[in-house]
């Protein structure tokens, strides 16, 4: 199942290394990814789409939230959370 994760992150040099590590460690391939400058300085908005089951998606969100430079994660596939 396709899951899109919407992240707000501090734009530090190692941020993407750590974010990518959450996916690559589990052998997930990224279908698409966009990075945009965020509303605040030094903050980026990131969208990452991967194929995985819902349990994995839940674990991924927790692992992403655990990263110090990840300010917020939303599951973009979950319509109830879409703003």
């Amino acid at each position: 199942m396709e899951h899109t994760f919407l992240l707000t992150v501090n734009n530090h040099p190692a941020t993407f290394l750590r974010v990518m590590g959450v996916y690559s460690r589990r052998g997930l391939l990224i279908d698409s990814m966009t990075i945009n400058r965020g509303a605040a300085p030094d903050v980026s908005d990131v969208s990452i789409t991967v194929q995985c089951d819902s349990r994995m998606a839940e674990n991924l969100i927790k692992q992403l939230e655990k990263q110090m430079d990840v300010i917020q994660v939303r599951n973009g596939s979950d319509k109830s959370l879409a703003s």
Binding site: P13, A14, L17, R18, G21, R25, M68
Partner: peptide
């Protein structure tokens, strides 16, 4: 070293 240790550190700074 930041790259090598990213998966096994809680955080890192340069």
């Amino acid at each position: 070293v930041i790259g090598i240790t990213a998966p096994v550190t809680k955080y890192s700074f340069q």
